[in-house]
Design a protein around this nucleic acid. Sequence first.
DNA 1: GTCTTTTACCCAC
DNA 2: ATCAGACGCATTCGG
DNA 3: CCGAATGCGTCTGATGTGGGTAAAAGAC
Length: 891
Amino acid sequence: MSSPAKRRKKNDYNASNRPVRSLDSFFAKQKDAANGVSKSNEPKIPQKITQFQDKGSGKAHEAAMTDEELARKLQEEWNNEDLDADANNSNEASDTRETTRANGISEDIVEPSLDKPELLKTSANKNLNDNQESTPLKKHVLSLQSAAAEEDTVSANLPFDQSPLEFDPTKSISDLQKQWVSDGGNATYALLTRCFVLVNGTQSRIKIVDTLVNLLRTIIEGDPESLLPAVWLATNSISPPYIDLELGLGGSAISKALKKVCGLDNTGLKTLYNKYGDPGDVAFEAKKRQSFTLRKPKPLTIKSVFDSLIKIANSKGQGSQEVKQRIVERLVQDARGAEESRYIVRTLVQHLRIGAVKTTMLIALSRAFLLSRPSNATFPVQSRESLRMLRKESLTELYSKNEEIVKACFARHPNYNDLIPILLEIGVCDELLLRCGLSLHIPLRPMLGSITRDLGEMLTKLQGRDFSCEYKYDGQRAQVHCDDQGQVTIFSRHLELMTDKYPDLVALVPNIRGEGVSSFILEGEVVAIDHESGDLKTFQTLANRARKDVVIGSVKVNVCLFAFDLMYLNGEELLNRPFRERRELLRSLFVEIPNHFTWVKNLDATSADAEAVLEFFKSATAIKCEGIMVKVLDDLPNPDLQADVDSADNEQAQPPPTPQKTVKGAKSKRKTKSITGNTNEKDAPATSSRRKALLATYEPDKRLDSWLKVKKDYNTSADTLDLIPVAGWHGQGRKSKWWSPILLAVRNAETGTLEAVTKCMSGFTDKFYAANRAKYDPDNEEESNTLHGKPGYVEYEGGNPDVWFEPQEVWECAFADITLSPTYTAAIGLVSDERGLSLRFPRFLRVREDKGIEEASEARFLAGLWRKQEAREPRREKKVEEEDAEQEEEY
DNA sequence: GTCTTTTACCCAC
DNA sequence: ATCAGACGCATTCGG
DNA sequence: CCGAATGCGTCTGATGTGGGTAAAAGAC
């Protein structure tokens, strides 16, 4: 065994901005089974008896338990029940609980419009009555059987997965409440589930929003206290990222729970997971096949599920895994019906996959509060009818105004804990921005730059405006808050709290305040640096810093903060000031501390300065920056006046001054076409006349063309590698029908082997995936192009791919950097004896039809690229050392 | 029991 | 970080 | 003049690399 395979993932943000975690560990135990190591009598008897209608997937032996075993099992279960009751601080007696809950069940699950609610209800009640007098064990058995019977009936007659009820828009909210909020007054998890099902079943964004609005309205009017947990659950986040509340739960806990609760064995689990690529779907299938269960499910409410998550997040220390496991299993058991199981599991892995996350939720919130308010609130709401009366334009305008308010609040104060209570109190109004806006020590969501292929595209996007170019250092983005007391808080790009990671910066930051500066929020890039020489270090070096319990004395990787923006100063928001002004304040009121704090290197230019910009870009890459950021400096003086002037000139700034595009209804028929004929540039279409004006303001949480990210590897002229696909894995989620990711290798001419260099999942079209899956098809007897097991000539120890390809084609791939790898062996021995090389940000470009595998890139070539990359002198970025013959950028 | 190794999570890009 | 797909909207095109 | 086609912006989801860290599992 050599290098342990590492796994992780990250995604850009979802609602919480918390990237989605990898589920590779879903199969942690799989390997054991495959190797025959499985501790065969470990999982065994699930806590409930299961039967599978499907042959193959289930385990017959479990259904064949003897009565004795069953009794023992049940006793065990019974004991567990007590334990759990204690653990839950529940003082209800179990049987009482079950009684009340049972009523809840039929209420929740039965829809008025469905056929046999009454019948079900009575049958449930009858069973409960039967339970009344019995010995504990017997009573338990009976109750279990009753639950089983009920579940059986339910899944036979009222499956969640078939024709879930619509949120009928003609129904009043109070009708919906009756349907969805149980007698106890708490919104049920079934309500959420139903909403997820509806949302998941549509591709229409409009319908998704409508469904969410109905959900939110129901909760707002029926059970406002559940609104916050509901929003948390629906957006996969139990807290804002900067509050340390992690589930610490991944695929492995889920797969264990599924095995135990649903009686799946490794094979069944693996089969299902390979097929669906989503643990929730596995749970769904497993539950669907289960004809009955012994354990009485305890109906889930939004709050109870949320409380369970909190409990999971809060359990730490030795034995915590087991505690978490128990809660997870309990939740999975308590899920009634297949759909609820699916979404409970997806909730647990914090990956709902319903096509609605942050933005959609914010939109839905803004609309829900237009129509609904909690009973104790007094803000005005409108009726559906009054909205229907509105002209289309006015409605759009009303919607978009409210959306903008809510989005703006969340961008400045991304914390549902604060936003939701205020919304419940005052609804969506201008005051919301005051009550829930930018504050010190609360991060705002960063403004982002849109990626830009090359300088030509850059100039086009800039529409002729004056701009500033800045080095894009390869480090970590940091948002630094400092109050007048000198207390400092540092946030990462994804708003994680980084204060503890950078005690050196915390000590430094109060000292960068110049005359008259007390409190501020600024943004910059933290880069590893040699404090003596000022040489910039690589990103990999920075990543080596410890993260927790860092004390200043023990810091081994020194850093420098390169500031580039200022959003808040002495109690005043600067977001609406143009960039030139913010930058001026940043540069004049703060003091440089060489090699500790400074500003990003910059060059101001106009579209006439293409050459200087190119030089600047080159100088940036020469000191190992990723490229440059380009930012619009000024707002348009008076956008309205410009309107008529420049539609003739594509390069010119554009008219629409109003951020709300909706206002355009009036006369904006404008001179759409005009003289576009004169344009010879392909990328300046006639449509440019309706482009939005570039903003020089700081627009939190937006990715606009007023900030452009130009990186060296975006360009087609960057180095690429011609790699050979050698293996693949079953994809997850929407890619579950294909191989993804795919393992790529370089050729080693000396040894004749293929050395794995990276996995790749980006850059493939769905069409390509489909063709690829058909080409490498292990089930195709005649022409499968796959191998049984790893061929000896492939070097890869990082895991067990689901399929090995017969090497036969060459793919051209792009990447940002070459990294020294702990897992991959490509070019090992050529640059390092212990480590091979791999790629940062690999992506597929195209098939090299013209190349055979014997023409694929060689390990030696890769090593050569690595040396070239390392050869770029890390130079001081100011006070250039004199030896620079190579380039000369700014003065 | 204590120390070391491995795993599975978290986070940066 | 990366990229592709899907939707919605506005404008343009085809008949 | 209206429906279909097209272009653009926005949102969503699937998963790449390296490395740190807490807790579990293994070694003695």
